[in-house]
């Protein structure tokens, strides 16, 4: 779906590249998590995936990004954004309207979706995100979690093949964060939408994502299936990425010779593993 070939990008007026020599393949239908310490280049990579880099944010672009067999440099940004729908980090500045319904309409109208199809698309988006009851509410009256869902709904109404999210749970409490990830999981499994999500909460990523990319200082530190990446828990901690506590437990138990593979990704797994050991 998306292939990145030795991408290096340096913003105009900056003295150092924000991302350096990134090569990555994102498969159709995947659930891809991107994590890394501050300044690792995560947001720049996300911008490159949907063409905002280099179309909106200009700079020196080396290598190539291909989305759905379109080269992002040669294609129009609006064509790329139709395939890769992006939910931005700052939801406040992304939301354009003052009422939920209009927010959904905005993209649909712009992309010239036939008017007779619009109603159905809005219903679909509101239903899947679970905010049908909010349709006529003003944005100002919504909570942070609800606003995040409106932003997601307004993007999936466009039926993108890839949904790209930049720290969607940054401002949310643990309960709402899990809800958002649960929603992403449904969209991924039910409709085959490829999910790419930048996230600091490693616990959520290790539970929901299938693949994980770890970035550090503008470069790709490692990537692969979640379990493979979590096996390197110690190295990850050194570059400033923490691991779920159960993953650290797995490492300890492995060192004591109790666990064969040094990886546990959630409490369910940990419970099963420990029960095997002690009973």
């Amino acid at each position: 779906m998306i292939s990145i070939e030795s991408l290096t990008f340096q913003y105009e007026g900056s003295t150092e590249p924000a991302v350096k020599d990134i090569t990555l393949n994102i498969e159709d239908g995947g659930f891809f998590g991107i994590i890394g310490p501050a300044g690792a280049g995560k947001t720049t990579l996300a911008r490159a995936l949907c063409g905002i880099v280099p179309h909106h944010y200009k700079g020196d672009f080396y290598g190539s990004v291909t989305v759905d067999s379109m080269d992002t440099v040669d294609s129009k940004m609006t064509d790329i954004c139709r395939v890769v729908g992006m939910v931005f980090q700052d939801v406040e500045s992304q939301i354009i309207s003052s009422v939920v319904e209009d927010e959904l309409l905005y993209g649909l109208e712009n992309y010239g979706i036939p008017h007779e199809e619009i109603e159905e698309r809005m219903d679909f988006a509101l239903r899947e995100v679970g905010i049908e009851d909010l349709r006529y509410r003003t944005i100002a009256s919504l909570s942070g979690g609800q606003r995040q869902k409106v932003a997601i709904a307004s993007v999936i109404a466009l039926r993108p093949k890839v949904l790209l999210l930049d720290e969607p749970t940054g401002e949310l409490d643990p309960g709402s964060s899990r809800q958002v990830f649960g929603l992403l999981k449904t969209l991924n499994e039910k409709y085959g939408i490829t999910i790419v999500v930048i996230e600091q909460k490693i616990m959520l990523l290790s539970e929901f994502a299938k693949e994980l990319a770890v970035m550090s200082g503008g470069s790709m530190f490692c990537h692969g299936p979640v379990r493979e990446v979590l096996k390197r828990a110690r190295e990850l901690e050194e570059i400033g990425v923490n691991c779920p506590r159960v993953a650290s437990l797995a490492q300890n138990l492995h060192k004591e010779g109790l666990l064969k593979t040094p990886v546990l990704i959630n409490v369910d797994e940990a419970e099963a593993a420990v029960r095997r050991l002690i009973s």
Partner: peptide
Amino acid sequence: AAAAAAEARGFELRNRTSGY
């Protein structure tokens, strides 16, 4: 950020007949 987000949702494609 707002400008980038609007562009991503087809700001430039909008015209007089777009409105639903």
